[in-house]
Design a protein around this nucleic acid. Sequence first.
DNA 1: ACCATATATCTGCTGCCACTTATATATGCT
DNA 2: AGCATATATAAGTGGCAGCAGATATATGGT
Lengths: 109, 109
Amino acid sequence: MSQPSTFEIVAEPTRRRILDVLLTGERPVGDLVEDLEMSQPGVSRHLRVLRDAGLVTSRTDAQRRLYTINPGPLAELDSWLAPYRRLWAGRLDQLAAHLDDMTDEPGER
Amino acid sequence: MSQPSTFEIVAEPTRRRILDVLLTGERPVGDLVEDLEMSQPGVSRHLRVLRDAGLVTSRTDAQRRLYTINPGPLAELDSWLAPYRRLWAGRLDQLAAHLDDMTDEPGER
DNA sequence: ACCATATATCTGCTGCCACTTATATATGCT
DNA sequence: AGCATATATAAGTGGCAGCAGATATATGGT
């Protein structure tokens, strides 16, 4: 996809995990490789996607690159969500019913 | 994907369009076919996905099925977003910078 | 020389999406 | 009863793109 939307970027479970780790603060690539138990090239590829989407930024510290979250683009999600948010306020019962229907966790690997 | 997450459901641009149309109220399938300029089986397949994800419900009106939004599952998105939302408050300047970097629209077809 | 990282390439797998055609079912109309 | 309409679902095809894994190379810091 030439210009993937923020939706698509964030739909990828591994990328969400990366962001969730970065939520705790700036991190070098090596840390992420350990945490995610993935190959370094694999992590770097995802970081590339996140960087291109403007969701993370990096700064150089000697040989390492420290990655930080840049939450700005997530506002796109948030504003798409806004009209729906109004709807589910006061319908939390429906959510509960839906969750009851689900036998197990979504396949998040 | 056996149990696609709400993220994946909503990452699909056509499905977001369907939800956006339903935001204006209950609609029969035929309306959606017209609005989206898609084949009827195509629309029905997306509706199936949305229904399985609990994002829409249908009720029968004679031969027609009227679809309604069920925003409940979107709360999952919203709560994932919550920690990030705190971050971008007060960083709207960064968002602006990011948007300036983008030459054209994300490829949303 | 060694380390951390980025990037590139290739392969293989898998799964999605669109489109078409066909069929089944329910309902309504005449 | 017979026909039209609305919808769902299935089956088949084509295309395309994502992701993981492996490997190789380049670069810059120590």
